[in-house]
Amino acid sequence: MVTKQTYQLRNEQILSNAINHLRNTPLNPDKPFIVTIQERTRSLEQNARLWATLSDISEQVNWHGRKLTTEQWKHIFTAALTKQDVVPNLAGDGFVVLGQSTSKMTVGELSNLIELINAFGAEQGVRFSDESRLAIEWANRWGESNKLKQVA
């Protein structure tokens, strides 16, 4: 029985290990294996930064006369970033956004989302919390994203 293996291809040695593992995997046409190569999804630090900035937006911005939850703001920003589609809901009295989950976003996609949220917050005069500012400073210091803007 072959167990699931995941490799983060950061250097030649890890790449070599992954290739060797593939070469030693038994082939069985009745039970084929699937190999997927993809960019790493969001980091825990990015996730924390996302929710800190969404919380600041949620607490400080009225959107067309309404206060929205962090989850609702997340839907608005992901829809704006990915040009998502909307369809009528089942009752016919509203709409549903056909969205993308942030948990499946790559590091680069989530960096772009956080950049969009920060730009919107700056336009709306949001004063970002220490948690949000520290998360942005951390990203800038460690080079996770050179696009994020520090908002005072």
Rank of each mutant, 00 (worst) to 15 (best):
V97C: 06
I114T: 09
M105V: 06
G108D: 10
V97P: 01
G108A: 11
L110E: 14
E109N: 09
D93A: 11
D93W: 13
D93P: 06
A119C: 03
A119Y: 11
V107N: 11
N112G: 10
S101D: 02
G121D: 03
A91S: 15
S103Q: 10
L116P: 00
A122M: 04
L116N: 02
V96R: 11
G121C: 01
D93Q: 14
I114Y: 04
T106K: 07
L113A: 06
G99T: 13
A122V: 00
G94F: 08
L90A: 15
S103F: 04
L98D: 09
K104F: 01
S101T: 09
A91T: 14
S101K: 05
G94H: 07
E109C: 05
N118K: 06
L110D: 05
G108T: 10
T102Y: 06
A91C: 07
F120Y: 15
A119M: 12
F95P: 03
I117M: 07
G99N: 11
L110A: 02
I117V: 06
K104E: 09
T102I: 13
L98A: 12
N112V: 01
E115N: 10
K104N: 08
A119I: 14
F95Y: 15
F95M: 14
I114M: 07
V107T: 15
T102A: 11
E109F: 02
V97F: 06
V107Y: 06
I117T: 00
A91R: 15
N118M: 13
T106Q: 07
N112S: 15
V97L: 10
A91I: 12
T102E: 14
F120A: 04
L110C: 03
F95D: 10
G99F: 10
V107C: 11
S103M: 06
S101G: 09
I114Q: 14
L90Y: 13
N118G: 05
F95L: 15
T102K: 02
F95N: 14
L116S: 00
G94R: 10
G92S: 11
L116G: 00
V96C: 03
L90M: 15
F95C: 09
V96E: 12
A122R: 10
Q100N: 10
L98W: 07
K104W: 00
G121A: 03
K104T: 08
G121Y: 05
K104I: 03
S101Q: 05
G92Q: 13
E115T: 12
L98G: 07
G121N: 04
M105A: 14
G99S: 15
I114N: 05
L113N: 01
V97A: 11
T102P: 04
S103Y: 07
V96H: 08
F95V: 15
G94N: 09
G108P: 00
L90G: 11
A119Q: 13
A122H: 05
S103W: 02
I117Q: 04
D93R: 14
F95T: 15
N118H: 09
E109K: 11
Q100C: 01
V107M: 15
L116R: 08
S101V: 01
L90I: 15
